[in-house]
Amino acid sequence: MQSLTGFLILGAEAEATGVAWGDMATLLFTFIILLVLLRIFAWGPLMNVMKERQDHISNEIDTAEKNRQDAERMSSEAQEELKKTRQEAHQIIEDAKQTAKEQEQDIITAARTEGERIKESARQEIETEKEKAIQALQDQVASLSVRIASKVIEKELSEQDQEKLINEYVKEVGEGR
C-alpha cells in the first residue's frame, strides 16, 4: 500500500526505502513557477476585472440610491407644490366668493340709491307739474273770473284793469293755499 500512496502523491513510483527528493523539488519548483505565472498573467488581470466589476456595481448602486433620493425629493416637492396649488385655488375661490358678496352689496346699494334718486326725481317732477297745474288753473280761474265779472258788470274792462284783477286774485288764491 505504501507504494501506491507514494505513486499517487508524487506522481511516480517511489522506492520503498526512500523518498524521491529530486522529483519532489522539481514538482515544487514547477508548482511555484506555475503559481507565479498564474499570479502575473491570470490573477492580476482577474483581480482587475473583479475590481472593475465591483467598482461598476458600487457606482450603479450609488447612482440608483441617488436617483431614488432624487425621486423621493421630487415626489415630495411635487406633493408640496400640489398642496400649495390646492391652497391657492381654494384661496382664489374664497376671494372670488368674497368679491361676489361685495359686488352684490355694491349692486344692491347702487340699486337702492338709484331707486331713491328716481323717487326723489319723480317727487320733484310731480311737485313741478303740480305747481304748473296750479298756475295754469289759477290763470284759467282768473281768466274765467274776469269774464264772469265783466259779464256781471256788463262792461268791458281794460287790459290793465284785467291784469290787475288777475294778479290780485292769484295773490288771494296763493295765500289761501
Results as ranks from 00 to 15, higher is better:
Glu163Arg: 06
Glu163Thr: 13
His56Trp: 13
Gln54Thr: 12
Ile118Phe: 00
Ala25Leu: 11
Gln98Arg: 06
Asp106Cys: 08
Ser158Phe: 02
Thr17Tyr: 12
Lys66Gln: 10
Leu38Thr: 08
Glu154Gly: 07
Ala122Val: 04
Lys155Tyr: 06
Ile118Cys: 01
Thr113Lys: 14
Ile93Arg: 06
Glu88Trp: 04
Ser150His: 03
Thr26Tyr: 14
Ser58Tyr: 08
Phe31Leu: 12
Gln162Val: 11
Arg117Ala: 07
Leu34Ile: 08
Glu172Met: 14
Met24Gln: 11
Arg39Glu: 12
Leu157Phe: 15
Arg86Cys: 02
Asn167Trp: 08
Glu116Met: 08
Leu165Ser: 01
Arg177Val: 09
Ala133Lys: 00
Glu65Arg: 13
Arg147Pro: 01
Asp161Arg: 11
Gly18Ser: 14
Met1Thr: 14
Leu35Lys: 03
Gly18Gln: 14
Glu154Tyr: 01
Thr113Tyr: 07
Gln79Gly: 04
Ile57Glu: 07
Gln54Asp: 12
Asp70Met: 08
Glu80Trp: 12
Met74Asn: 06
Trp21Gln: 03
Ala96Arg: 05
Val36Glu: 05
Ala12Glu: 15
Asn167Ser: 15
Lys155Glu: 12
Glu114Arg: 05
Ser158Ile: 03
Gln87Met: 08
Ile108Gln: 13
Thr17Pro: 02
Glu81Thr: 10
Thr30Ile: 12
Glu13Gly: 03
Gly115Asp: 03
Gly18Val: 07
Thr109Trp: 15
Lys132Thr: 01
Ile107Met: 10
Ile92Pro: 02
Gln91Pro: 01
Thr113Gln: 15
Glu168Ser: 02
Gln138Ser: 14
Gln91Leu: 09
Leu165His: 00
Gly44Thr: 15
Trp43Thr: 14
Ser145Asp: 04
Thr5Pro: 00
Gly22Phe: 02
Gln2Asp: 13
Glu102Pro: 02
Gln87Lys: 09
Ala89His: 06
Ala42Lys: 10
Thr26Gln: 15
Gln160Val: 09
Glu65Met: 10
Arg147Met: 05
Ser58Cys: 04
Met24Val: 13
Arg53Leu: 12
Lys51Asp: 14
Met50Ile: 15
Gly174Cys: 10
Thr109Leu: 15
Gly6Ala: 03
Leu28Asn: 09
Ala110Gly: 04
Ala14Pro: 02
Leu37Pro: 00
Asp106Lys: 15
Asn59Pro: 02
Arg53Trp: 09
Val152His: 11
Lys151Tyr: 06
Glu120Asp: 08
Glu77Gly: 02
Gln79Val: 12
Glu77Pro: 01
Arg73Leu: 09
Leu165Asn: 01
Ala149Phe: 10
Val141Pro: 00
Leu34Phe: 11
Gln87Ala: 03
Val141Met: 00
Phe29His: 12
Asp62Cys: 05
Ile134Cys: 05
Arg147Lys: 15
Ser158Gln: 02
Gln105Phe: 09
Ala111Asn: 10
Ala111Val: 02
Lys97Ser: 09
Ala142Tyr: 00
Asn67Cys: 07
Lys66Leu: 13
Phe7Ile: 05
Asp55Tyr: 09
Lys155Asp: 06
Leu82Ile: 10
Gly6Gln: 02
Leu144Met: 05
Val49Pro: 01
Glu168Pro: 00
Thr26Ala: 15
Thr99Met: 12
Val146Cys: 03
Ile33Phe: 11
Arg39Pro: 01
Asp23Arg: 14
Leu8Asn: 06
Gly115Glu: 07
Lys130Tyr: 06
Asp95Cys: 01
Gln91Thr: 14
Lys132His: 06
Ala136Met: 03
Met1Phe: 12
Ile61Thr: 08
Ala64Pro: 01
